Simulated scan of single mutants.
Amino acid sequence: MGHEVIGRYYAAFNAGDAAGMLDCVTDDIEHRVNEGEIRHGKEKFAEFCSHMGVSYREELRDMVIFANDEGTRGAAEFVVHGEYLQTDPGLPEAKGQRYVLPAGAFFDLRDGRIARVTTFYNLNDWVRQVSA
């Protein structure tokens, strides 16, 4: 069960399908990003997805998904292949720079949906790549 919902979530991500991602999460989703505030609820998560779709074009490759037998916890490891399209406030200026960044995420799962996602990547590595 955990593998399936995480797989659908990332398939929707790679397809640029924010609605598909939202279908995979609970109404009270807790979204913990690598840098920044915790977002609570589907509305805040949808706002984040919309912002990301404007500022970045990303494809996640080399995906490996892990889940416990109970279907309550999961994790994924992947490599982000991206393009920086529009300047994100507080970050370097966007000029269409491309980047490749190892990343991962941890999940709490409830009733076949994602209740928490915590994403990790090396921000300094990303800044170095888009500033080069």
Rank of each mutant, 00 (worst) to 15 (best):
F107I: 04
H81M: 13
G74Y: 07
C24P: 00
R110P: 08
T26E: 10
A103N: 09
G112V: 04
L91W: 14
V80P: 05
V25C: 11
E47C: 05
I29S: 04
G82P: 08
A11P: 01
E47N: 12
A12T: 06
F48V: 02
V33I: 11
L101E: 11
T26G: 03
R39S: 04
L101Y: 09
G71F: 04
S55T: 15
G16I: 07
G71L: 06
V100M: 12
T72N: 10
E43W: 10
A19T: 07
G20S: 10
H40V: 11
H40E: 10
M52D: 04
P102D: 05
G36N: 11
P89K: 08
T72K: 10
A18E: 04
E35Y: 12
V33R: 14
E30H: 08
A15N: 06
F78M: 13
D69P: 07
R39G: 00
D108Q: 07
G71S: 08
I65F: 11
E47W: 01
A11W: 03
R61P: 00
Q97N: 04
F66A: 13
M63H: 08
E58Q: 15
N68E: 04
E93P: 00
D62M: 08
G112S: 05
A105Q: 01
M52H: 08
V64K: 15
A11I: 03
L60W: 14
L22W: 04
V64H: 15
V33M: 13
R110Y: 04
L109Q: 04
A75C: 09
V79T: 15
A103P: 00
F66V: 13
Y84F: 12
P89F: 08
C24H: 01
D69S: 14
D108I: 00
L91G: 00
N14V: 03
F78D: 07
F78T: 09
A46F: 05
Q97K: 04
L91Q: 14
A11V: 01
C49K: 05
V80Y: 03
H81R: 09
G20F: 09
E35H: 11
A67T: 03
Q86W: 02
F78L: 12
F106R: 01
A18K: 11
T87Q: 10
Y84A: 05
N34I: 10
T87V: 10
Q86I: 12
A94Y: 13
G74I: 09
Q97R: 06
A18F: 02
R113W: 02
H51C: 01
D111N: 14
V25S: 05
M21I: 14
F106K: 00
L101P: 11
Y56C: 10
G20M: 06
N68H: 01
F78E: 08
D69H: 12
K42P: 03
R61D: 13
R32I: 14
F48E: 14
T72E: 10
F48K: 07
E43L: 13
F107S: 00
K42T: 01
A46E: 14
A12C: 08
V100K: 14
H51W: 06
V64L: 15
E58W: 03
V64C: 14
G82E: 06
D28E: 14
E58I: 15
P92N: 07
D23S: 14
